[in-house]
Simulated scan of single mutants.
Amino acid sequence: MGLPRPSETFDRVYSPPEPPSTAARRSAVVKIFTVVAVFAAVASVVMILLADGGEVGGPGDRATVVARSSARVAPPRPAPSSTRGRLLTALPAPCGTVSRPTVDRLVPRARGGQSANLTLATCTYSSAGAGSRWLRIETRRFDPADGTDPVAAARTFFAAQWTRAREDPMVRTVRLERQDGLGDEAYRWYKIDKGPPTVVGEVAIRIGNGVVTVGYSGEPPGPYAGPENERKYLAEAAGVAREVLDALK
């Protein structure tokens, strides 16, 4: 038999678990505080709504007020064409838009004639004899009562006048062109009648749902299509048209 093995005593080494790192502890703390903050915010909103009775639009509905104010970023929608600008609701007296001194200067010893209804008014001043002249003012108003857009109707009528001026076989057109600075759109037309030897300066204007047409005619000395006559008759017609526009305001 062999010798018995001597008993040996071994000391067991104990290693405790390593503590968590500082970064991990900080992350856990941050998460806890975040959760607490969220719950606190939700509780505050609930308390505010309950205090105001839960009515949307109430004086304490702060969340709704903030949402509405932040949503006002889109530009307003344009108004329909029938509501843009001032509309003519009635026509003035047919011969009440031009001053008497203007009439006496343009048409000496003038005789006047007029007619009117709810949508059309005309006034004509004329003189007889040598150097006879006439001045005619026509004012149209397009009424929305028939269910149409009055501005669109006036625009269509004005376009038809422009087309007629370009194609009128009864006159010789010397100048026909658009004119800026009068109403919403305007044109001026200098023409010579093929009948009696007279010249006509005409200015037509659209303003909203109204169309104003002024014609000034006479028997000027010298060449009918001369530049001096053209400037004179177009300038006088434009001046009368401005007086009419002022009377419509």
Rank of each mutant, 00 (worst) to 15 (best):
A110G: 04
V103W: 02
R109A: 14
S21W: 02
G2E: 14
D104T: 07
V211E: 00
R86M: 08
T173W: 05
A24Y: 11
A23M: 05
V103R: 05
S70A: 15
E230I: 06
M1R: 12
A121P: 03
G222S: 04
W189T: 01
D149H: 04
S21I: 04
P223G: 08
G60D: 10
A67D: 10
V240S: 00
Q114P: 09
E167D: 14
A225I: 08
A79G: 08
A116C: 04
V211Q: 01
G113K: 12
G208P: 03
A237K: 00
A28C: 11
A237C: 03
G239K: 06
R242D: 01
K191E: 14
I205H: 00
A165S: 12
D104W: 02
P4M: 05
N209S: 07
V174M: 03
D246H: 06
A37S: 05
Q179C: 10
S127K: 07
P20M: 10
L106I: 06
E167K: 15
R231E: 10
T102P: 01
T148R: 15
S44W: 14
L120A: 07
V98W: 04
L245F: 01
A121Y: 01
V240M: 00
R105D: 09
Y216W: 04
R25I: 13
S217P: 00
K31P: 14
G181T: 00
A152I: 08
G85R: 08
G85I: 06
Y14E: 15
G85S: 09
S21D: 07
R155K: 14
Q179I: 13
P94A: 07
A154T: 02
A37K: 05
G113L: 08
P197G: 10
V98E: 01
T34H: 08
T139I: 11
A247T: 03
G60I: 08
F10C: 10
A235V: 06
T64S: 14
T124C: 03
R188C: 01
V199Y: 02
A159Y: 00
A121W: 01
A153H: 03
V174I: 06
S99A: 13
E236L: 07
A165E: 04
R62E: 11
A128G: 15
G96H: 02
R25G: 09
A247F: 05
I32Y: 13
Q179A: 12
V65L: 15
I48E: 11
V200Q: 11
V36F: 11
Y14Q: 15
T124R: 12
C123G: 04
T213S: 05
F39Y: 09
A71H: 09
V174Y: 03
Y233L: 04
G183P: 09
P75Y: 04
A241E: 00
V30G: 14
V35S: 14
P221T: 04
E185C: 03
D143M: 03
L118H: 13
A41S: 06
Y187R: 02
R84T: 10
T163F: 11
S44L: 15
S82V: 13
L120M: 09
R133I: 06
L3W: 12
A225D: 15
D246S: 09
R242H: 02
E230C: 06
S126M: 13
E8M: 12
S70F: 15
P76R: 03
D168P: 06
A152Y: 07
R84F: 05
